[in-house]
Design a protein around this nucleic acid. Structure first.
Lengths: 129, 129
DNA sequence: TAATAAATAGGAATCATTCCTGTTTATAAA
DNA sequence: TTTATAAACAGGAATGATTCCTATTTATTA
């Protein structure tokens, strides 16, 4: 990969956002610094960064989200408010042991939990009173 | 849900296919029996069947696949040949215990493993000789 | 048998993502 | 420093899975 101002700015934008932004959200964020950046460039660069293991991708619904945290971790998605949280459930060691139990060669271990987050659950309970 | 010939045929098609068919694959299959079935009908009925817990959905890439097996199980996707296998790794009991460790209310536990399946791996090794 | 709400076919619309093309830029060799 | 060239880019068109829309048909219940 050659040095690129756009790609650096894109990487910074992903790392700055703990919300796991979509490509479009990264586009909007980077636009503040590079007004005429192209959405296609954002997609291309995010793809390159992911291919090189510099960022991770998370799929939820029909959109891809990008995650600057490359440590092994899992995610929780709240169906009520749409928030996507990091969820530490299995560590690297556990995942490594699991891989040895499977005949296939595992590259990725993607766990997505969905449900209602604690905040929404409490709000829901209140409304029911 | 009212009785519907189309929906029944669609459900049979999903259950008959161990490959976890996409909506379009179900459409093609059902077309043999109901030639003028609409793709929109297939999508609508698959959605209803999933909403009622009669079938499950699996997301891989940008397509949804449908699974007639409603028991708790996980999936492995081979990046080489595109096959999607059932993978029993965590049983219902284990998943239940995990849920108690999390503050949020968990409804779904979706694990997708990706990599190279044993068959493709062996083929690859041969080619390298 | 009639009323009616669910289900349907077919096509249009949506939207995230990828592709295409002519132009610009980073890098390395001359 | 200049030149060559392949990567990166902007902007817009294309793609493809899925959903929406509307007029028509069908299952169910009174």
């Amino acid at each position: 990969m050659r040095h690129s101002h756009q790609r650096n700015t894109i990487l910074e934008a992903v790392r700055a956002k703990p919300v796991h932004p979509t490509a479009y959200q990264v586009f909007e964020s980077v636009k503040e610094q590079i007004p005429n950046i192209s959405l296609a460039t954002v997609y291309r660069d995010l793809g390159q960064l992911a291919d090189n293991g510099i960022i991770n991708t998370i799929k939820k619904g029909n959109v891809v989200r990008y995650d600057g945290n490359t440590m092994i971790h899992q995610h929780f998605y709240c169906e009520e408010c749409g928030s996507l949280f990091d969820q530490e459930l299995f560590d690297e060691k556990f995942v490594f042991q699991l891989k040895t139990k499977i005949v296939h060669e595992i590259e990725n271990f993607d766990l997505m939990l969905t449900g209602t987050c604690i905040k929404c659950k409490n709000n829901g309970d209140k409304l029911k009173c």
